[in-house]
């Protein structure tokens, strides 16, 4: 019965491993912090497994023994109890040694992690909102300060400092393949240094329960070679692309007349809302609604037409639009590369 269960279990793991892409996994590290932590996880797991097996052997021993049941419960063998006392004391001593060792290992791992941010050149302020991430690139030159949402572009191979805070409830920033998590707490500022070894897209999501749409508060760290990253920053600083088609022009007008403008900002237009994601270059992002939908014309339309169906409880209201109006707004937004 038990063996059957373990076979079924092994099969299930094998099956699910196939589906696992590893882009949000603590066991698939892509940066120095996550690598150190993955090593730590395996080390602890290995040691704990050995301890567990030893305890199980000690538990199985009296069941294997052929000795008889005791008849007189209060008649004890003093010599045997003395030997047991020595065994128990040894086991307790070993436990203490292992725990001290693990404490030290953990302490040194912490020091390694702290060293990652020793010379950061880039600082990004990440602010949590229900249920999206505001991302602001700090720069000494005010005109180069850049605000975007949900996707964090970083130069690969360079340490980056994230300043984490929140304006509403507590969130937690966690991109497991790069580093451990850290909370975003209103009234507090936390500092997390991350580094991606190679270019790539690393998914993360909010790890502290933050209300209705906690499950759909994803983020992406996109590591690029330095030159590509610089180019991206420059592109993002540009005002929004002017609408090309008539439909898109109509869309822009609608956007500015409808409630959209109350919450969203589009650089280069009168739209200046700050309570929702900046849409200046929304179409350049890979996903919509904080990692909930992939960016496409259809998904844009679905999100605008039925935000409460896509993310029930989210703060994006339903705006009453006709089919043509919806298409126009989608055409406009789709052009905001």
């Amino acid at each position: 019965m038990k063996r059957l269960a373990s076979i079924a279990f092994a099969t299930a793991i094998a099956l699910s491993l196939q589906g696992c892409s590893g882009w949000q996994s603590a066991l698939d590290p892509k940066g120095p912090a996550a690598s150190e932590l993955a090593w730590l996880i395996w080390f602890f797991t290995g040691l704990c497994a050995v301890v567990w097996v030893l305890v199980m052997v000690a538990l199985a021993m009296p069941l294997m023994m052929r000795s008889r049941q005791r008849a007189e419960p209060l008649v004890l063998d003093a010599g045997a109890d003395n030997r047991k006392l020595r065994v128990v004391m040894t086991a307790v001593g070993l436990t203490a040694v292992i725990l001290v060792g693990l404490t030290l290992v953990s302490f040194f791992a912490n020091r390694t992690l702290a060293a990652i941010g020793s010379d950061v050149a880039l600082t990004i302020r990440v602010t949590g909102h229900q249920w999206w991430w505001e991302v602001r690139y700090e720069d000494a030159t005010p005109s180069r300060i850049l605000t975007t949402a949900n996707e964090i572009h970083i130069p690969a191979g360079e340490p980056v400092r994230l300043l984490l805070t929140s304006t509403d409830v507590i969130h937690s920033f966690w991109v497991p393949s790069l580093s451990g998590k850290l909370d975003l707490i209103p009234g507090h500022m936390n500092v997390l240094d991350i580094k991606a070894d190679k270019p790539g897209v690393y998914r993360g999501q909010c790890a502290e329960f933050c209300g209705a749409q906690h499950a759909n508060m994803g983020t992406f760290v996109i590591a690029e070679p330095r030159a590509k990253f610089d180019a991206w920053w420059n592109d993002q600083l540009q005002p929004a692309a002017a609408p090309m088609s008539d439909e898109a022009k109509a869309g822009e007008n609608l956007f500015l007349k409808r409630p959209c403008v109350m919450c969203h900002k589009i650089g280069g237009t009168p739209a200046g809302g700050t309570v929702a994601p900046d849409l200046t270059h929304v179409a350049s992002r890979q996903t919509l609604a904080a990692g909930t939908l992939t960016m496409s014309r259809g998904n844009l339309a679905a999100w605008i037409a039925d935000p409460q169906g896509v993310k029930p409880g989210s703060h994006m209201p339903v705006v009453d639009l006709s089919g043509d109006e919806l298409n126009a707004i989608v055409a406009y937004l789709e052009g905001l590369k």
């Binding site: 603590a26 996550a34 150190e36 932590l37 730590l40 996880i41 602890f44 797991t45 704990c48 301890v51 567990w52 305890v55 199980m56 725990l99 693990l102 404490t103 290992v105 953990s106 791992a109 912490n110 992690l113 937690s172 497991p176 580093s179 451990g180 998590k181 850290l182 790890a207 502290e208 329960f209």
Partner: peptide, 21 residues
């Protein structure tokens, strides 16, 4: 015993930051 041992893992600050929540 498994739960106790994973508890030891969670006691480690850096390790906890990966598995917390």
């Amino acid at each position: 015993v498994i739960g106790g041992l994973t508890g030891v893992m969670l006691a480690s600050v850096p390790l906890d930051l990966q598995v917390h929540d």
